[in-house]
Simulated scan of single mutants.
Amino acid sequence: MPTPSDDRNSDDSPAPALDDLESTAELHALGPAACLFKSLGDETRLTILQHLSLGEHRVVDLTDHLGLAQSTVSAHLACLRDCGLVVSRPKGRASMWSLAVPELLALLRSAELLLEATGDSVTLCPTHESTIAGATSPHADREERG
């Protein structure tokens, strides 16, 4: 006598190919890495991380260094904290912010070495040109007319 589980497996749809499953698993496994690099893909957050690589800072110190509003710096710190890249500890009425993991310094240094090796290639890439400070999209004319 067939069981309900037999009915579920008896449809005519093909089973997913092993290669498709492996590709999906690989993409899923890369998701956290993509999120990490998105968190590092902002110039302000990178500047904050550079300052924190020198030691602990208060938000007021970072706002002075960066010339940004306290709310802006706090929002970027919250993003970095939520990604596990920075931590804070109370000191009086202030919070002292620092890097959460020393491996972040090695990653930032590797990025510097990669930029030295590739030169201006990244900044000249038309895909990313619109995200570079002061640059406009190569398609801006068409987008405005479009």
Rank of each mutant, 00 (worst) to 15 (best):
M1N: 11
P4L: 04
S5M: 08
S5K: 13
R8N: 10
D11W: 14
D19Y: 06
L21T: 10
A25R: 06
A25I: 10
A25H: 01
E26H: 06
E26P: 00
E26G: 07
L27G: 07
L27W: 03
A29Q: 03
P32N: 02
A34W: 10
L36A: 03
L36D: 00
F37H: 12
S39L: 07
D42Q: 15
T44D: 05
L46C: 05
L46N: 09
I48D: 00
Q50H: 13
H51L: 13
L52A: 00
L52P: 05
L62T: 08
T63I: 01
L66F: 04
G67C: 03
G67P: 07
A69T: 08
Q70I: 07
S71L: 08
S71F: 07
T72R: 15
T72M: 02
A75Q: 07
L77M: 04
C79S: 01
R81K: 10
C83V: 09
V87N: 02
K91G: 10
W97G: 01
W97N: 01
W97S: 01
S98G: 01
S98Y: 04
E103I: 12
L104K: 07
L108A: 07
S110N: 15
L115Q: 14
G119Y: 05
C125E: 11
T127R: 01
E129Y: 09
E129T: 13
I132V: 14
G134Q: 04
A135H: 15
S137Y: 05
P138H: 07
A140S: 12
D141E: 12
D141N: 11
R142A: 15
R142N: 13
E143N: 05
G146K: 02
